[in-house]
């Protein structure tokens, strides 16, 4: 302990205020008295202290130089790597210096104090707070009708003030089942060009969009020329493909995965499988695109297509209109 500076001061180690102890209460057993709060690491070791001081100064010198470097880097085109180096060194030097200063030259280590009674109040205080609460509760309980009515009113009013939320978006309804495809809508490429069946080679695959609204996110469709592959066609889907030379030819399949809506865009030509790279649902194109691996539970819907008078590929109807399932992932009232 350094000597007392003012005669009226309690010695630091015996001043209960510094150890979380209520001055009116006895000194607790688990808090040692006369703790020396002025101890620091290199106390009584002037050489060590000098060295510590130099270490801290060196660390801060790094910050100083790095800060100047940072200015230079900024002026000289702001190279990201050099900037990172300068920021890193500047922060690092500052931090190391501060920590060394605390560790080597500052007091306040390893002190034991009381936790006090901060987490629990005295019984008298607890009684008082319950009484205060009761001051309001009792009159309320005496008017049960008003109390219940307030609850009901609050509920109705709560619903009423929630109405602005309804403006956030339109009601879903039938919109959920529709894409931009429809009878006679041409399939166009990303560049907006319509396609003739002859432009798609065997095993060729092409993403097409409805000409009427190419940006509709549920409409992207894959045209696949299956050539003479053995495509399973149930009676209700007869005539949905564009046969080429009397063979299966071109089929149109929704690109939107039925699991989570990512584009199922990886096509394996050998096995005729479509894979969605988000969660790796795998669909067998030859078996009506039914899911054969991964989390998807439904097949990719097929779009009935035909060739119009000018020889371009068009849709015969929208996906769901054609009797197929709506496109994309599931939802509650899809059925």
């Amino acid at each position: 302990m350094t000597g007392t500076l003012d005669d009226n001061r309690t010695p630091f180690g015996r001043n209960p205020r510094h150890f979380g102890i209520d001055p009116d209460e006895p000194w607790p057993d688990d808090v040692p008295m006369d703790q020396d709060d002025t101890r620091w690491r290199y106390q009584g070791d002037p050489k060590g202290a000098k060295k510590a001081e130099r270490r801290i100064a060196a660390a801060w010198t790094v910050t100083l130089l790095a800060s100047m470097g940072l200015a230079a880097v900024y002026v000289d085109g702001a190279n990201t790597q050099l900037a990172g180096l300068c920021w890193g060194l500047a922060f690092g030097g500052l931090g190391v210096g501060l920590i060394l200063w605390a560790r080597d030259l500052m007091p306040g280590h390893d002190v034991i104090a009381s936790r006090g009674h901060h987490n629990v109040s005295s019984e008298a205080d607890r009684v008082a707070v319950a009484e205060s609460l009761g001051r309001g509760l009792d009159p309320m309980a005496r008017r049960p009708f008003l109390f219940k009515m307030l609850g009901a009113v609050g509920g109705v009013f709560g619903l009423a003030i929630a109405f602005p939320i309804a403006s956030l978006g339109p009601r879903p309804h039938r919109n959920l089942y529709k894409t931009a495809w429809g009878k006679g809508v041409r399939a166009v490429t990303l560049e907006g060009k319509p396609i003739r069946p002859s432009e798609l080679p065997v095993n060729g695959i092409l993403t097409v969009f409805p000409e009427t609204d190419p940006s509709d996110a549920l409409s992207p469709t894959l045209l696949i020329n299956l050539g003479d592959a053995d495509y399973e066609t149930p009676p209700e889907r007869v005539g949905w493909n564009i046969p080429i030379d009397g063979k299966t030819g071109i089929v149109a399949i929704s690109k939107i995965c039925t699991h989570a809506g990512c584009p199922a865009s990886l096509y394996n030509v050998v096995t005729h499988q479509l894979v969605c790279p988000c969660h790796y649902s795998t669909f067998d194109v030859l078996q009506l695109c039914k899911p054969i691996f991964g989390p998807a539970a439904r097949g990719l819907p097929q779009l009935p297509i035909a060739v119009d008078a000018q020889g371009f590929i068009v849709a015969q109807a929208d996906y769901s209109r054609a009797g197929g399932a709506p496109v994309g992932p599931g939802f509650w009232n899809r059925g």
């Binding site: 990172g84 922060f91 501060l98």
Partner: peptide, 20 residues
């Protein structure tokens, strides 16, 4: 001082990563 120093060190690591 130590907590301030730690904040500087965390920033240092973040900016080194950000740069490199």
């Amino acid at each position: 001082l130590k907590a301030g120093g730690l904040m500087m060190l965390v920033s240092s690591v973040i900016f080194l990563l950000a740069g490199f």
